[in-house]
Amino acid sequence: MELLQEIAATFAAIKANTPLVHHLTNYVTANDSANITLACGASPVMAADPGEATDMVAKAGALVLNIGTLNAAAVDTMIATGRRAGDLGVPIILDPVGAGATPARTDAAGRIVRETSPAVIRGNAAEIKTVAGLSAAIRGVDSAADEPGGEAVAAGLARRLGCVVALTGRTDIVAGAGRVCRIANGHPWLARVTGTGCMATSLIGCCLGAGASPYAAAVTGLVVMGVAGELAHRSLGPEDGIGTFRVKLFDAVFNLTPELLVSHAKISETRED
């Protein structure tokens, strides 16, 4: 199946199947992650209590792990829930928010990778470089800038871990399964709204929950976010700012169709021999 067909089929499957996506995520962006999940046609749940999280994941189609608001108890819950997901065959997407900013974040991301075997890891260039064991420039939980060599780092990490790596920036890169996709969709205002990276992670989780392969899920989720950002900005009036843009972003995802998504996708792909 051609990649554009995979994207269309994956997005249609979300709306057809309404997968339950379990989030263990950060409190800054939890509401936005829940709403973007609903907007694309899936169903979110945020059961973070240690006594409930491992039971809830048994009902889910995918598990989102996001370390944005880090604490030791939350990481332990993520690992226990991730192990349970692995036993059940529930795919995991990890968002190593701020990995590299502090030793605690770097260690937490490393533990989760080692102990839960995520199907997809999504992060900015600095976070992905940190997970790969390389030095990176990071400020707080934000990458200082897009960094060179991202495609090689993503592809190398994907091969080493046997997973899909989604690196987001001016051009998004998805590497895994002997394939590399470059996604040129998006708008600079996406970087001016808190949580758009977390929302992209949730969208990938929705695609995983709908049964897509990790590679197709990562590509589709990032194309959805990029296209929605373009459409949201295009619909703004002259006096609208980032608050209206944020609301328009949800509207754009809600109103997307597989056909509209494919018609706006700006992707290129290479495959390993």
Rank of each mutant, 00 (worst) to 15 (best):
A104D: 08
T29F: 04
T116I: 09
T102Y: 04
C40G: 04
P103W: 06
N124H: 11
A126T: 10
S143A: 15
E147G: 01
L65W: 00
G149T: 10
L70E: 05
A119D: 13
L88T: 12
L70R: 04
D49I: 04
P96Y: 13
V57R: 11
R114S: 14
G98F: 07
G86C: 07
T130V: 04
V97W: 09
V141E: 05
V64E: 03
N35I: 07
L24W: 07
L63Y: 13
G82H: 10
T81H: 06
G140K: 12
A136T: 07
I112H: 01
I79T: 08
M46W: 09
V131N: 01
P118R: 11
A39L: 11
T37L: 09
T69R: 09
D146M: 10
I112A: 02
V75W: 10
S117G: 01
G41L: 12
I138Q: 07
G86S: 13
A145P: 02
D142C: 05
D76C: 03
P44H: 06
V131M: 08
D146T: 13
A144Q: 11
N35A: 03
T102P: 02
N66M: 13
A99F: 10
A47L: 04
L88E: 06
T81P: 06
D146N: 15
S143W: 05
V97E: 07
G150M: 13
N71I: 01
A125G: 14
G82W: 01
A119V: 03
G133C: 11
G140D: 12
A144H: 02
A62E: 02
V131P: 05
L38C: 05
A145Q: 13
I79K: 06
V120T: 00
S33G: 13
T116H: 02
T25K: 12
D146C: 12
A137D: 14
M46V: 12
A39F: 09
E52I: 12
